Simulated assay, not measured.
Amino acid sequence: MRVAIVTESFLPTVNGVTNSVCKVLDHLAREGHDAIVICPSAHAPSSYRGFPVFEVPAARYRSFPVGLPNLLVQRLIAEFDPDVVHAASPFFLGAQAIAAANRLGIPSVAIFQTDMAGYAKRNHLGPATKLTWRFVKWVHEGASLTLVPSSASMDDLQNMGVPRLKRWARGVDLEAFHPNNRSRPGALALRERLRPNGDEVVVGYVGRLAPEKQVERLAALRGVPGIHLAVVGDGPSEASIARATDGMPLTFLGRLGGESLSEAYAAFDIFLHTGTEETFGQTLQEAHAGGLPVVAPRAGGPIDLVADGVDGYLYDPEDPSELHQLIEDLVESETLRLRFGEAGRRAVLGRTWTNVCGELVKHYESVIGVPRLAVPTQRRVRLS
């Protein structure tokens, strides 16, 4: 199979979209498929897993490259002549790719991953919120199939009237995130650093430090006895978070990856998620894989990932006192933490990237050769 992946984000930018695209490319390479990557210009590698990477012009917004419409997108797709176009978290660049695929008579699969409309609403952009939803609807209406990561996202898109929706989750590395990692020297050293008195319960957060992540909610834990907070990540909200948690026992660990990230999870006792705009919640899966109890808002993707009272807790994001009490309950009971952690590990055992990407390939196959009723089929064209 030949797959053209058009993504709004790629290396060296590291985020959920990039990570998912890389896992898909890893799987396609292992299974002997052919692929290309089209992404915004940001000094990306010229190839990944042997697949060529093509950059198109981009502008910078909040330090992220944003792909701009360019005739190169259709030319690259036409020359590669793929069986399917994969549009990762499509916005400006992905919208152009889907339109180009329709003109060329190539099916497309759009991956809904970023809640752009939620961002507009949170930032009080007024009419821009409705316009953003209209644009999102227009983009996904053009795709042969849209894959959504959670029931909340499914509800949002169905309510907008977006057709041809199916669920597709994300995988998790069950070896990189494993309870046994707690015995690694690096994890033990970090745990000792985070427990200056030797008996603190470490409550950890992993993710970008940006307004939409609402990490300032950690302030709700002020006064919980016997805890130490650990924050993994970087971003523009770090100063705001520091102000909100001033005087609290908190360590900023910066952005981590690879073995260092695995060891950070292994140094935690409880994983706390704060944002309400997650379409999925990959870090929650990683925490579950590491055998940690998870506490997350009752909103968006976490609703599907956390079994309330079984492998963690869901809290009302508008009620800081509830978050405070739930964390306090877990701090006071090691038995409860262990029970939730074991249940979380069991819950993700079937969610390997191999399984999840295998499902994705089946979704590709489901749209290949299926005639589009809404968009006139056009003959494929090779451009030199």
Rank of each mutant, 00 (worst) to 15 (best):
E8L: 05
F10L: 01
F10C: 00
V14N: 06
N15V: 03
V17S: 09
N19D: 06
L25H: 03
I36Q: 07
V37C: 05
I38E: 04
P40M: 06
P40W: 01
S41W: 04
S47T: 04
S47K: 01
Y48P: 07
Y48K: 09
R49F: 03
F51S: 08
P52D: 01
E55W: 00
Y61W: 14
S63W: 11
F64P: 12
P65Q: 13
P65N: 09
V66S: 15
V66H: 10
L71T: 14
V73I: 05
V73L: 04
I77S: 10
D83I: 00
V85D: 03
H86A: 05
P90W: 00
F91V: 13
F91K: 13
F92S: 14
F92M: 13
L93C: 09
L93M: 10
L104C: 09
I106A: 08
I111Y: 15
F112V: 03
Q113S: 14
Q113H: 14
A120I: 12
N123G: 10
T132A: 11
R134H: 14
K137Y: 11
W138S: 15
E141M: 15
E141H: 15
A143R: 14
S144D: 15
L145E: 13
T146C: 14
S150C: 09
S151T: 14
A152I: 05
M154Q: 15
M154C: 13
M160L: 15
R164T: 13
R170Y: 14
V172N: 06
E175N: 15
H178D: 12
H178Y: 09
N180E: 14
S183L: 12
R184Q: 10
L188G: 02
L188M: 12
L190Q: 02
L190D: 01
L190E: 02
E192P: 05
R193Y: 10
R195P: 07
D199S: 13
E200G: 00
V201M: 11
V202H: 03
V206N: 05
G207N: 11
G207V: 06
R208H: 11
R208Y: 04
R208F: 03
P211Q: 04
E212W: 00
K213S: 10
R217C: 11
R222M: 08
A230D: 03
A230Q: 01
V231K: 08
P236D: 10
P236K: 14
S237Y: 07
S240C: 09
I241F: 00
R243M: 04
M248E: 04
L250Q: 08
F252T: 06
G254C: 10
G257V: 02
G258H: 09
F271Q: 14
H273Y: 04
T274S: 06
E278F: 03
Q282S: 12
E286P: 11
A287L: 03
A299K: 12
P302T: 07
D308V: 04
G309T: 01
G312F: 01
Y313I: 00
L314P: 06
L314Y: 08
Y315I: 00
E318M: 12
D319R: 08
D319H: 06
E322F: 01
L323H: 00
I327N: 06
L330M: 06
E334S: 15
L336R: 14
R337G: 05
R337V: 02
L338I: 15
R339W: 12
E342K: 02
A343S: 11
R345H: 13
A347P: 15
G358W: 02
K362W: 02
Y364F: 06
I368Y: 11
R372M: 03
A374C: 10
Q378D: 07
R382I: 03
L383G: 02
